[in-house]
Design a protein around this nucleic acid. Structure first.
Length: 315
DNA sequence: AAAACGGGGAT
DNA sequence: ATCCCAGTTTT
């Protein structure tokens, strides 16, 4: 796609608008593709609720769709409305969250439900500022709820959409590690004016990134915008940030230790003594530090005498 | 701007 | 062994 940006600008990109006909052509192709290739996900069902979309979005913050789907179904059966979730016990919420990862999201989702009940009479707001004021809802999730729950205009810019725009419009393999002002502005140029079209572009561009324009092995032969793709036209240049992207270590990290402690407490039927916690990790210093951080995050609760403490999920 | 935060499946 | 995933919050 010919746009104002050269593949790797040496200077900050001037505020040249992307030609409207070109973004419109990309949108039309993506819309047509999405109409026949959209996955049949439960949070896209015609009988979905804004709360159901909220739950899916929070679960999908860093957890893949295939793992979210069964958890989402169980969650929606157990707590079908914000009012139901608002009164749930944190321990039950954390067990239902199971191994989706980043369990603080589960607690925030519960706090979000409580705030929706208190501030908005139990109904999700449509206003971006009101959405962003809720626990666990940031820039992406607020935009996603507007588009997917309410069919309203917003700039949905997740990892998939960022990658699609980076390739099609900027001609680079992957977007920069951090979202820049120029990138957000470019993404906004693709968002049509009316609510319906904007919501459709949000869903289609995200799905294209998830199914075709994937990070590792893009299926360009199946891509509806391959003829317009700047990355393809440039000969698929390699990622300029390749050496700089450092992968998050896992083995031996606090995150792994915290995960083990949480797994122990999720499965425990009774409060767990210190020696049982000790059994999940040999390094006492790291173990104590992680337990302290879990207590600070309100993911774990300590009860009993200080000489012989017990630990459990917060009630 | 950078770090912290889980866990599993794909390559 | 490394990468990636519908990000948010805190420092």
């Amino acid at each position: 796609m010919r746009v104002s940006m050269s593949p790797v600008p040496a200077v900050p990109t001037p505020t040249t608008p992307v030609p409207a006909e070109e973004t419109a052509e990309v949108r039309q192709l993506v819309d047509d593709w999405f109409a026949s290739h959209a996955r049949d996900l439960p949070w896209r069902s015609p009988d979905r609720t804004p709360y159901g979309v909220l739950v899916s979005e929070v679960m999908l913050q860093q957890t893949p769709v295939v793992r979210v789907e069964p958890a989402w179904r169980a969650w929606m059966t157990r707590w079908p409305t914000p009012a139901d979730l608002a009164t749930a016990a944190p321990a039950d919420v954390l067990r239902a969250w199971d191994r989706l990862g980043y369990p603080r999201r589960a607690l925030r989702l519960r706090e979000c439900a409580r705030a929706v009940v208190e501030r908005h009479d139990g109904e999700l707001p449509t206003d971006e500022a009101a959405l962003r004021a809720l626990p666990g809802i940031g820039e992406y999730t607020a935009a996603a709820i507007r588009a997917f729950a309410f069919g309203l205009r917003s700039t949905v810019l997740d990892t998939n959409v960022r990658r699609v725009i980076a390739r099609v419009a900027e001609g680079i393999a992957l977007p920069a590690p951090a979202l820049t002002v120029a990138e957000r502005r470019l993404a906004q140029a693709f968002v049509p004016d009316d609510d319906r079209s904007a919501a459709r572009w949000a869903a289609g561009s995200m799905e294209l990134g998830a199914l075709v324009c994937t990070a590792r092995a893009p299926r360009c032969d199946d891509c509806p915008v391959r003829a317009l793709c700047a990355w393809r036209a440039a000969g698929f240049p390699a990622d300029a940030h390749a050496g700089r992207r450092r992968t998050q270590a896992w083995a031996g990290t606090d995150r792994q230790v915290r995960g083990r402690i949480m797994a122990l407490l999720r499965e425990a039927l009774e409060p767990v003594p210190a020696h049982a916690v000790a059994a999940v990790w040999p390094d006492a210093g790291q173990r104590d530090r992680c337990l302290a951080s879990l207590l600070a995050d309100h993911l774990v609760e300590q009860i009993g005498p200080a000489e012989d403490p017990r630990y459990r999920l917060p009630g």
